[in-house]
Design a protein around this nucleic acid. Structure first.
Lengths: 155, 155
DNA sequence: TTAGATGCAAAGACTTTGCAGTTAA
DNA sequence: TTAACTGCAAAGTCTTTGCATCTAA
């Protein structure tokens, strides 16, 4: 786990007077592993069980709630029909998502120009922005040109 | 109901060989009333029951699925924890949403500059965009300045 | 006439919660 | 020591589905 992440977690636990327990450590390790993948509750549960098979879904959901409320995890909608969680907002607070409709890969991107435009529009409407998110669903050019992309071979 | 909307609905029903039944008429009327409000399944159910009290939730969900698949309704996430449905993409195919965190009001906006930027970013990443959506959560300046906004009076 | 649509109620998927026992600080 | 936390299982919420019946075309 990235030390910056560890620091933010510790700060949250101190700020809210939360206890660092074994079950929570396991969930944190599964959620904030170096890979930085998005996950659903069920996927996190699987990861947590690999670390320690005694993990419980109830505690996992309770911990997810704490982390989302503390701003360390963001709930995102990747069009799966279930809530996904994104652990990358600590290191990249302003990123957005592009979802490949061919292979379901999720690509994170940041763009200053868009961010500025969003702020302008918000001001013009008479508001001050708090959270901005862009989701682009798209199709992979590479798949169409070469017949394959990261996860798929065209039939 | 707007005639353009009626036309699109009829086209969808013909294209897919669907039957125009009484229960479906009621749901369509509730979903595509002139007001153009967003709604959850439960909210639509209430509206439908006002038109005809015999409405059934099963048929309503089945019809919602048809309309979403047909592109007439978009599923959107307004941060309520439940899926909301947006009937305004027929008349405004490229709009986005600003959600007021003070009063929960949802404001729709369109912006050509952002749309162009989104396309550029998508191309640069090697994709062709299909659906783009922006969600901005914001706080009402008016409430902070004058102590009141559309739905709230500051305490 | 008949394939498609309906309504009910049961099942399913996901998430939350009450409670008795456990544990970090 | 004790307030916070845990795991279990039960309950809750939202959505889907099987089936017998009905109906638009």
């Amino acid at each position: 786990m990235n030390p910056e992440v560890r620091e933010k977690i510790d700060a949250l636990f101190i700020r809210k007077g939360l206890r660092m327990t074994k079950p929570r450590e396991i969930i944190l390790e599964a959620a904030f592993s170096e890979k930085g993948d998005h996950f659903t509750a069920e996927e996190l549960y699987e990861k947590a069980k690999e670390i320690d098979s005694r993990a419980s879904l109830a505690t996992l959901y309770r911990t997810l709630t704490l982390l989302v409320e503390g701003g360390l995890l963001h709930e995102i909608d990747l069009g799966k029909g279930v809530t996904s969680y994104d652990p990358n907002f600590i290191e990249h607070p302003h990123h957005n998502h592009l979802i490949c409709m061919d292979c379901s890969e999720v690509i994170e991107f940041e763009d200053q120009h868009i961010a500025v435009l969003e702020d302008c529009i918000t001001k013009r409407l008479g508001f001050s922005p708090t959270t901005k998110s862009i989701q682009i669903k798209a199709k992979c050019d590479k798949l169409r040109k070469t017949g394959s992309c990261n996860n798929l071979i065209s039939k």
